[in-house]
Amino acid sequence: METVNVTTTEKATAVPAVRKKRKWTADHWLAAAFLAPSVVLIFLFVYGFIGWTGYVSLSNWNSLVPDWSFAGLKNYLYLFHDFRFQADLRNTLVFTVLFIAAVIVLGQLLAILLDQKLRGESLFRNIFFFPMALSFVVTGVVWQWLFNPSTGVNLFLKPLGLDGKWYTDTNILGGFHWGKIEFGVPVAIVAVVVAAVWQMTGFAVAMYLAGLRAIPDEVREAARMDGATEFQLYWKIILPLLRPITVSVIIIMAHISLKIFDLIYAMTGPGANFVTDVPGVYMFETTFRGNYYANGAAIAIVMLLSVAIFIVPYLISSRKGGS
């Protein structure tokens, strides 16, 4: 990792020096001409529409006919007092924490096991990575059947006296009253977490494996020479060295889980008592089924901000790291 950093720093300092001396050549104009359309399009269709969505979220447009009058924060206030949205926030938080924790732990474990120079490593690597090739909708449909109380894994569990309700379970673990809802861990969300982890762990494995391969053997040998046990070697040296990878995994997984829609929509829907509902599903239904465009826009903005909490510090720190 460090060697990579050094080269980028050199480039970063070298380029501005050159640019000051030289005038814009045809090459520069060509590059700018190629970039211009996509820059314009991105500003128009991404940032422009983010701004537009923000404006809609402050309007009174809650029917089929657009109503652009200014509503202030009315839509946001409505949402934060709404049972369903409060449940969504709880579910997203629980889902994100469980999902990221499971992906990191499993990703590291499997990557370390794969890194033992065993035979058929590429076969296992492919097996772990294959679920990534599916779309979340396919995963959702498959796991919906696997966790269906009357089919799937329950056919194995029933003879053992276990009768899982999985995503139809409406219990909330460690629940206490908060706002209009019971705050805690909805049991049903665990089933969705399992499906998401099954799909995304392979990605974390690949990243950690790359990280492990970048750690020079000398480090391990030096540690062993100093009398470190294998456990100490991994716990005190290798895993801390993998920390930058963990940061990347958290960022990537967080933006997936905070925006998740397709997996939930295909697998469980909102769920009884909204135990598996998420803001994405609520936004879709309230906007396109209920025609509450302003409320839907407000949900979209809340989702954007929640992702920004993760992404913006990362972008800032990576820019600082570059200069």
Binding site: N273, F274, E285, R289, G290, N291
Partner: peptide
């Protein structure tokens, strides 16, 4: 009733079936 009201009733019913 208009779709907006139907959506709200669906939400209320979904909560009621459990609670």
């Amino acid at each position: 009733a208009p779709e907006g009201f139907v959506t709200k009733v669906n939400q209320a019913v979904n909560i009621f079936v459990t609670q």
